[in-house]
Amino acid sequence: MSARWPTIRMIVNGEQRGIQAPPMKRLLDVLRQDLHLTGTKEGCGEGECGSCSVRMNGELVNSCLIPVLQAQGAEIQTVEGLAPKLEPGGTLHPLQEAFLACGGAQCGICTPGMLMAAAQLLETHPRPTLAEIREGLAGNLCRCTGFMRIFESVLAASTQASQPALRQAHHAR
């Protein structure tokens, strides 16, 4: 049945992937169903909540609003690719470390999208102001934290990790 569909190639978390899917299938569903990357969540299906945020070619996007054909050839990064060498006792991204220390994650359902938005923010604004953090995360709804712990987490990650260190993507716990 999938032979009907074109093969779409993407680089997901640094790996070449090819999947056959209807071109109007949402990138979100391809990630979750075809590639079993269930870290990316669906909260609303209409681009409002940001739970499905991933990075595509260096920009933050809502994967629920992307027909997978438009991701042809793209580089995609999901939460699973934030700290690529994760093992028990392994490494976390500085943002993940900061969220853990500052209480940036509560129920955790918005967390993967929030982390991707924060990672995007730190790339464009390595030393963000609080106003820049608020704007950078405004598309990611969190209902648990009231955002204060998240702001603190992002600030902590931006000041702890100098930008070159952040670009290395992860550091030892």
């Binding site: 700290a83 853990l100 994650a105 955790g108």
Partner: peptide
């Protein structure tokens, strides 16, 4: 003490399994 959230790492790396996962 501010110990790390027990299931925190699972949530932060996308490993935590919610029902739709």
């Amino acid at each position: 003490a501010p110990v790390p959230r027990k299931e925190g790492v699972d949530k932060l790396v996308g490993r935590a399994q919610y029902v739709d996962d």
